[in-house]
Design a protein around this nucleic acid. Structure first.
Lengths: 338, 338
DNA sequence: ATGAAAGCGCTAACAT
DNA sequence: ATGTTAGCGCTTTCAT
């Protein structure tokens, strides 16, 4: 039966067990230099009193907080949500807690959040792409706190990075559309300053260039700008797009909604490939052809790397891990239509 | 320019400003009993040294951590993700940080998480439904830590609760299906011990009972049990369901995937209503008729209530807030088909 | 209005 | 193997 959690201190435990404070502390920290009998006594006392160590006090002394920060741009993105779950699982297994810091992309908020984290003595940071552009990331990076970045190498910073083969996958997806004979392929993305977006755009352009096809891009500052009107305008010209390559999940949803509203048939009126796969991709008619990122793995690999740094097991140069993506062909790209 | 964040202490600030530690502390805490001139001096020193207060130390003394815990069952659920975002926004505006605790429904893990939170002296807990069944929630509830529960009243516990009109909405949805002439309506849900599920089932049954229609239920222990086979089996009988009422988003996705795999046409072969709306509900053909919960508001109301408790502004009896839902008719229920 | 001193719960030298 | 003594960085009586 657990008690309040506020009042019973290690001192109380020591007293109850008839040992010194330090001995009790040793038990708490699994020190080896203990007589089994002594340890048993202390453990019994702990259980009896319902002792809960005060992590704040432990952290104050050791300058560690047993907490890591997770900075994510957009919790509503299933990509992000899935990654978070992996991170949290790994963190728990290491006895760490995850503090959430979501800025929604607002740079000044992000700064505030980062400060809040520093003040809490967090032991590490996992930063998810699109959290920031150039960002004030420099702050924690300059400090002693290990950082692992998912999906976005930080310029000139020495941190571990986990990414996927953005450019290559985007190129392959574009080539797939070209293979279907589409020549007016519209790349739709948001926040083009972000690494992931830029890389995907680069892959798209590379594919077009090779075939000498002109690029068509709808790159907006923010996903929210991908309104029906925005798409309608692009599609209104004399030579409208015959295919769309959507550069992330949020864009894909926006496109699907817009195409639906404009009563465009996929892929008859316009084909579609999505960078980012999602649960309902095969339910929508036709199924949405997509580039799938190994989302869970991105999260867990990031967390594992972080803990290796935190626990000092890894003090080598920053690693860049690149995970492969998967190309999932369904009907929206035009396959099965020919 | 921010410094390391670890080394500059309030003592350093006091020294640099030529005042006592306590005076510096007063400035930090916006005490009124200060000569403006003194305050200016201290603030300048703070800025100059790049002082960052150590929240762990503050918390140790004051027994507060400026952190709240958010216990959520399933981050991948957009319902949960959206609510989290609201909570986090409110928390930030109060200068609090959000610690994530997701058990994935595992009761023993949940206990571990709850302990971890207690040890960190968290100031409050927001618990999202489906986190636990009966749960060891008793622990924090018995303690001094304020708790607000979203979507699931805790039996006999004295906590604020925010829910939606689950039963009424489920009943209305079922009646809508009955109104279309469906008489073999299958309710599909998971974790029937959860309040939300139970309430929705109750609403469903009430509607059927009134019309003297026999109930058909597929209630599984966990969402993962809603496989294609499970549905196929139910639909295989001599009198298969002619409509499905899915009791939450996860179930809806599972049903959509299963129906798709079984090549059932909605609503011709079988109609569908979803409890929980989602982004792509109108993109799928036909659009999915859904009960929409005011998700953001659930989150922000919960957080606001929590902070009123934390800050002692509200010490009245536990409040039960019930928010209305919205019924969004699209095509999957059979509307537009007649 | 400001300061000196004690202590929050714990860990870590340094004894013994 | 166990105890003693200082603090970690901050807040808080209680003086002044």
């Amino acid at each position: 039966m657990l008690k309040n959690g506020g009042s019973v201190t290690l001192k109380d435990v020591a007293h109850a067990a008839g040992v010194s404070l330090k001995t009790a502390s040793r038990v708490l920290n699994n020190s080896s230099e203990l007589r089994p009998e002594t340890e048993r006594l202390v453990r019994e006392a702990m259980a009896r009193l319902g002792y809960q160590p005060n992590e704040l006090a432990r952290g104050l002394k050791s300058k560690k907080s047993a907490a890591i920060a997770l900075i994510a741009p957009n919790l509503a993105d299933p990509f992000v949500a899935t990654a978070i779950r992996s991170v949290q699982n790994v963190a728990r297994s290491h006895g760490y807690v995850v503090i959430l810091a979501s800025s929604g992309g607002d740079v000044s908020l992000e700064k505030t959040e980062l400060q809040a984290m520093t003040r809490r003595q967090i032991d590490g940071i996992i930063l998810m792409a699109a959290a920031s552009g150039k960002s004030d990331l420099a702050i924690p990076l300059k400090s002693r706190v290990p950082v692992v970045v998912i999906d976005e190498p930080v310029r000139g910073a020495e941190v571990d990075t986990i990414t996927v083969t953005n450019r290559k996958a985007a190129r392959a997806a574009t080539e797939h559309l070209l293979g279907h004979g589409f020549r007016r392929i519209l790349a739709v993305g948001a926040r083009p300053h972000l690494f992931t977006c830029a890389e995907r755009v680069a892959g798209y352009r590379a594919a077009l260039r090779q075939r000498d096809v002109k690029k068509m891009e709808l790159l907006v500052p923010h996903e929210a700008d991908l309104t029906i009107d925005a798409l309608a305008k692009v599609l209104a010209g004399p030579k409208p797009a015959d295919a769309i390559f959507s550069l992330n999940w949020v864009c894909t949803v926006a496109m699907l909604r817009a195409l639906n509203a404009l009563e465009k048939n996929i892929p008859r009126d316009i084909a579609l490939i999505s960078f980012d796969d999602f649960d309902l991709a095969e339910v929508i008619q036709p199924g949405i052809t997509a580039v799938r990122q190994p989302v869970s793995e991105l999260g867990s690999r990031a967390a594992k790397s972080l803990f290796e740094r935190i626990e000092g097991k890894d003090s080598s140069a920053p690693r860049k891990i690149v995970l492969p993506t998967e190309f999932i062909v369904r009907g929206s790209c035009g396959c099965g239509m020919d």
